[in-house]
Design a protein around this nucleic acid. Structure first.
Length: 343
DNA sequence: GGCCCTCTTTAGGGCCTT
């Protein structure tokens, strides 16, 4: 597996884009906080800044001559520096010893940076009662607080050839790490090796994706895994957030992984903004409106559309800001988001 | 498929995702 991951270089794929939306989420969050005059929500979704072994200068071994047209991009953030930290993922974090291991990992291997560290160091035990979490009493609040300190929050979205994961295929994937910084976002078209019947929805045509230089899913998964791993805090978990992900994006992604003989890494968690949106509506004392689509939420919060609607990266940008507003409204900390996550 | 609402719970329709 590791060998496969190292077989691809993002720089090799100009159509696979890693953008620099960097700190837009943080900037917006701080603006929101200034407007509200409240500091409690600033504990939500914060994280420290880390970079994997080798940093941006690392080199991946090229073992294929297949030219795949992808794009990368991004901006440097002053707080990001190279580090010799190694990836040592803890697969299961369910015991007290593992909780202690997290704490040890945090102290020994991680660097805290600026205000974000101060934010995350605060207690994050506040939870909103209307957010129905799936967790049982197996894990303590402290466990989730510890886990939150090493969590990477990544919003993601997919475009597909249809709704049926059994017969349809992913044709575009986009992600945005809310921590921002260099290589914080990732976007690529995916070659489904079939016609795209719903171009009218997202504007992605058969001609755009059925190309030799657009990666197939089996080509992309190792790159995608490497991207996520590059954003992951050593010893921490990744929380992949999407809208209606529980019933669409995540099962679709899992199906594609399975089809290509891959498994979703055990330290990936998934969160869905749809139940968060319902919880916000309930908390305001109103019945859950019938329209709680991502577009409806974006309009509700006055978030401008960046780029064409129903393209993965545009929706990810919207989702990142919607998530920020939802967690703010719910006063939901990272630990609460993790408690409500699923695998 | 899961969730929510209502003309409901022994059910059905609508919404979310493309």
């Amino acid at each position: 597996m590791k060998t496969i991951v190292m077989c691809f270089s993002l720089l090799q794929f100009p159509r696979c884009r890693i953008h620099s939306l960097a700190n837009s989420w943080w900037e917006s969050f701080h603006k929101l906080g200034r407007r509200s005059g409240s500091s409690s929500s600033f504990r939500v979704l914060c994280s420290n800044n880390y970079e994997p072994e080798g940093g941006s200068s690392r080199r991946w071994t090229r073992v294929t001559r297949r030219t795949i047209n992808t794009k990368t991009g991004g901006s440097n953030e002053s707080s990001i520096r190279n580090t010799s930290v190694r990836h040592e993922i803890i697969p299961e974090l369910s015991s007290e010893s593992n909780s202690k291991k997290i704490e040890t990992t945090k102290v020994q291997r991680c660097r805290k940076i600026g205000i974000r560290s101060k934010i995350i160091a605060e207690s994050t035990s506040t939870k909103i009662s209307t957010y129905e979490v799936e967790s049982t009493e197996i894990e303590s609040d402290q466990y989730y607080i510890d886990l939150a300190k090493l969590a990477t929050i990544i919003c993601f979205d997919i475009e597909t050839t249809g709704f049926a994961r059994e017969k349809d295929r992913i044709i575009e994937i986009a992600c945005q790490d809310l921590r921002g910084g260099e290589n914080s976002t990732f976007q690529t078209l995916v070659n489904p090796q079939r016609d795209v019947p719903n171009e009218q929805i997202h504007g992605i045509s058969t001609r755009m994706v059925n190309r030799y230089d657009v990666p197939r899913m089996k080509d992309l998964i190792p790159i995608f895994l490497q991207y996520v791993r590059s954003r992951q805090i050593p010893g921490g978990v990744v929380v992949l957030v999407s809208h209606n992900g529980r019933t669409f994006d995540v099962p679709f992604l899992k199906k594609e992984f399975s089809r290509c003989s891959y498994e979703i890494p055990s330290d990936w968690l998934f969160a869905d903004t749809l139940p968060l949106a319902r919880a916000v509506m309930k908390s305001k004392g109103s019945k859950v409106p019938s329209k709680i689509s991502l577009q409806a939420l974006r309009e509700h919060y006055g978030i401008p559309l960046i780029g064409p609607a129903h393209r993965a990266l545009s929706d990810v940008h919207s989702l990142a800001l919607v998530l920020q507003r939802l967690t703010y409204d719910l006063k939901l900390p990272v630990s609460g988001l993790i408690q409500g996550s699923f695998k």
